[in-house]
């Protein structure tokens, strides 16, 4: 029995008269990469915000690992196991890569209100942080300030940060945004490797990456879930082809 790690039931959100999310049932199972796709304006961002807690749903529930998180705050959902990466890179540029990852690690731990000792000297965090950075290929630049990082490196750091959180589920919000095909192959490989740690809900526009990575795909259109299935199912789905893929082979 595959108990879903992340599940939404009847998620609905209105802005005035506009129905942004229309009774969406979504589930992400263990060991899968589940892609969420849809044209611009389909409501992907609104849906993601209801998953993270940035927006409060009007109706429906969000369930993480069997626990109803619909009413809890963004930070407590993160501690409950939701590891979210940002579409616009949100790395802290005044810190080094190592510090960025250490901050991710520190979140669930004690000593956060320590006013006296040096954060630099927390060796146990160092080891885990280095491991995460090495995994994404940034090991050598751990002690470099992030503001000198290029765009691709910042994307890698985003992955390292969410990796360090050791979440129950990864929520990757357009991790390939703004990257050329050459740059993105590295990130695509990283994402594929993440599957072994936790399932992934992947929001992406890059169809090539989506169809190569995803085990299942959910298509959103006008706030409604159009279809869920394997990449092949989706490719063959008439409704999806006409409304989104435009009949093209992905």
């Amino acid at each position: 029995m595959n108990v879903p790690v992340l599940q939404t039931r009847g998620l609905t959100k209105r802005f005035g008269h506009f129905l942004a999310t229309d009774c969406v049932d979504l589930d992400v199972r263990a060991n899968e990469i589940h892609a969420l796709i849809g044209p611009n304006g389909a409501g992907k961002t609104t849906l993601i915000k209801q998953l993270t807690g940035e927006l409060r749903q009007d109706q429906g529930r969000v369930i993480l690992s069997g626990r109803d998180v619909s009413d809890i705050s963004i930070d407590r959902r993160a501690l409950a196991g939701l590891g979210r990466s940002f579409q616009v890179t949100s790395v802290l540029t005044e810190f080094t890569a190592l510090q960025n990852v250490k901050l991710a690690l520190k979140a669930g731990r004690t000593g956060r209100f320590n006013f006296w000792s040096r954060f630099e000297d927390e060796r146990c965090l160092d080891d885990e942080a280095y491991a995460a950075l090495s995994k994404v290929g940034l090991g050598a630049k751990a002690r470099t300030s992030v503001d000198s990082f290029g765009y691709g490196e910042r994307r890698q750091l985003e992955i390292a940060i969410v990796l360090a959180m050791r979440p129950k589920i990864f929520l990757l919000d357009e991790p390939l945004a703004g990257m050329s095909t050459a740059e993105s192959s590295g990130i695509v490989q990283l994402i594929a490797d993440l599957r072994t740690i936790a399932p992934i809900l992947l929001v992406e526009h890059d169809m090539k990456a989506v169809f190569s990575l995803a085990d299942r795909i959910t298509v959103l259109s006008y706030g409604k879930k159009l279809a869920t299935g394997t990449p092949d199912d989706i490719r063959r789905n008439e409704e999806v082809r006409s409304s989104y893929l435009g009949g093209r082979e992905a």
Binding site: D75, L79, S90, R112, I161
Partner: peptide, 14 residues
């Protein structure tokens, strides 16, 4: 102070 959204997403009650 640098990025409150990010810190919340990491699990900090900012």
């Amino acid at each position: 102070a640098a990025n409150e959204q990010r810190m919340k997403a990491l699990g900090y009650p900012t």
